[in-house]
Design a protein around this nucleic acid. Sequence first.
DNA 1: CCTTAGGTATACCGACCGGTGTGGTTACTT
DNA 2: AAGTAACCACACCGGTCGGTATACCTAAGG
Lengths: 181, 181
Amino acid sequence: MQKLTPAGRRVLDVAAELFYRQGIHAVGVEAIAAGAGVTKKTLYACFGSKDQLVTAYLTERDQRWRDWLAEWGGDSATDRLLGTFDALAAWMDREDFRGCAFVNALAELPSADHPAHAVVVGQKHWMRDYFADLAREAGVADPEDFAKSALLLYEGVTVAASAGIDGAAAQARKAAAALLG
Amino acid sequence: MQKLTPAGRRVLDVAAELFYRQGIHAVGVEAIAAGAGVTKKTLYACFGSKDQLVTAYLTERDQRWRDWLAEWGGDSATDRLLGTFDALAAWMDREDFRGCAFVNALAELPSADHPAHAVVVGQKHWMRDYFADLAREAGVADPEDFAKSALLLYEGVTVAASAGIDGAAAQARKAAAALLG
DNA sequence: CCTTAGGTATACCGACCGGTGTGGTTACTT
DNA sequence: AAGTAACCACACCGGTCGGTATACCTAAGG
């Protein structure tokens, strides 16, 4: 995403908030423009279409999550590996959680042709590779195998939490530790 | 759900297909009525509102999944426990999978007041209890703890599969077996 | 000094949304 | 024979959707 004009920046911030909070289909461009104190004309000048605005929203959110993870230190590779679930717990605490934005987007955008689809798929594969890299560094016997299981636990956390199941992140961390052996 | 008239039955079948395939917001009552060969008047006589139709769709899908699980036999409690992931794999193969209908519904219906919300939450808690009961029967040391982890894996499978990750169900089964010790 | 980028405001477009009203037809029940 | 439940056809409602058109304003840069 190239640099945005001040108005474009406001639009993307408001869109991100509304899309996540209320869902993509449920939010109209009119409401986004109004929330950003901007006319629809400006919104369309900056993003071209609602679909592209959605894609920009997901792309930026993906980047923010990767930055969040990168800053989440840990002494050893194992610490950083299991720390992923602590980072997730902390992320979910920041806002009133409404599930994984990428999973939610997938639910609302069935067409595989939608540009947002690739962003979501990319994010999940990146997470799996992230787990695999750390597992390799930690000397896990089969890093790819562990990474696949870790991804399942990771995705399970967001779903379970949004369905009102408490302590999902801590549970996932415990299970992942058990799988490490 | 009380018994439906033939027209109501067709409406619910078509609605289930369209809601799952295209998403709830993306499907209008007009399209459902047309698909069922029925007028909107009849649709509203049978279900009252789109929200109630959505709720009926999820409720029936929940029941179908429980029936599917119940028929999925297994010699021992452990077999039935791990067999859940085989049942899930088979379920996902039946149709061209588009994720967990309940998770998708949650993504599209942010309001916790929506009657469908309770159906989704109920389904997830039922699954956790299902795992816990089987784990207890199988003599697992801490059945509740295992059930929580199993639920995470279970939810992870549907998300990962819809994000194009192959072999998620088999991976979950393997991980669950490892957690059983 | 004049152009251009980045805005403003407002009105408009066709299409579709969930939901209702009116009235007529069929078929089974009592 | 009368009544009723289940359905059809069709027209209509106010509201919102994503997106565009016209016209004007303002500040920065050659």
